[in-house]
Design a protein around this nucleic acid. Structure first.
Lengths: 178, 178
DNA sequence: ATGGGACATGTTCTTAGGGACATATATGAG
DNA sequence: CTCATATATGTCCCTAAGAACATGTCCCAT
């Protein structure tokens, strides 16, 4: 149930609407914790019901911006420092890699080169973000500083995977694949 | 719906029971695609119903080993070469990192050092596996060759994250954390 | 003025995941 | 012989995730 805390954390930066938050969950966050708007609106209503957030303002087109409450701030802080970190990974592309021996060698080569390309492109995107932050485009607030740290993880993670895919392509199949 | 293909892939290596498969999903696989026995038994029954696997033998303690059928082999092969790769990541520890600015600096330092330790230990575990494979402990079958490739990803991924956590600890908080 | 597109918020439905509960059997230690 | 433990297979239930559907509103270009 981390979407809850994801929303609280984002609202700790300042008031935002469900639409805004869904946007945030698509850009940087989309790569590390995807969430679609149905879940977001539902969770916002639940959080408001519990008094962890409250309506900050209503705007055009039924827009409702929420603000975090003191109770909400306390909740996210306690989550950050007291609850156990979940290190679970669920990486389909690694599950696939276990079964490379079932693939035709040519298919596999093609697959790995596409994978390397994908990861390299993702790394480049994160790197671009990092460069913009370092140029000061997003300011120097503590929030953007933390975002910078998160983005760095994105860069390193995807670079490592791109290199892995390139390396994997050099591993001989060891035996006929049947 | 990748558990389905995970099971087919493992059964492609040879007959196994639900219990065996649950075990496999706990060791190497646990780190990249967790699955508990309730899901596994349910999915095995479904796969058997569709004719993608069949009962190979029955043993003591109601043990039922399954064998992959030709249809099952065709299914996993087509999944591997024809279906789109899902690159989704859902990493709670990175979601947390977005909110580091909300944490007390001392808490954060402690947190990051524990994270670095965790990732380094995980990397070491994967490295140990890799070394055993390279010493020939698991043989030289194509299956173990693929496992070696997967394990290498585990090593590189967790090493990258350990370094990231160490690096993150050196980033100054930039401003008071309120 | 009007129609298309971006803004904005929801509901509904199905499946996936995971904790808790339940049960039966074989084996080995004392 | 008996009891604990490991083996082995399942069910039940709740929540999470995500695709599809539904609706209303504001703004701008033609």
């Amino acid at each position: 149930m981390s979407l809850r805390h994801g929303l609280l954390g984002l609202l700790a930066e300042g008031p935002a609407s469900g639409y805004d938050l869904a946007g945030r969950f698509q850009e940087v966050l989309g790569g590390i914790w995807p969430a679609q708007h149905p879940k977001i609106y539902a969770e916002l209503n639940r959080l408001a019901g519990e008094g962890l957030i409250e309506v900050d303002s209503e705007g055009p087109r039924r827009r409702k911006a929420y603000r975090i409450t003191d109770a909400g701030l306390a909740e996210i802080r306690s989550w950050l420092s007291e609850s156990a970190v979940d290190h679970t990974m669920r990486l389909q592309f690694l599950l696939r890699s276990l079964f490379f021996w079932l693939m035709d060698p040519d298919d596999l080569r093609r697959h790995l080169s596409r994978e390397a390309e994908y990861f390299a492109a993702a790394a480049a995107t994160y790197r671009e973000y990092a460069a913009r932050k370092d140029r000061g485009e997003f300011g120097t607030s503590p929030q953007t500083q933390s975002m910078r740290v998160t983005i760095e993880a994105g860069v390193r993670l995807h670079e490592a995977l791109a290199e892995w895919a390139r390396w994997a392509a050099t591993v001989p199949p060891a035996a006929p694949h049947e």
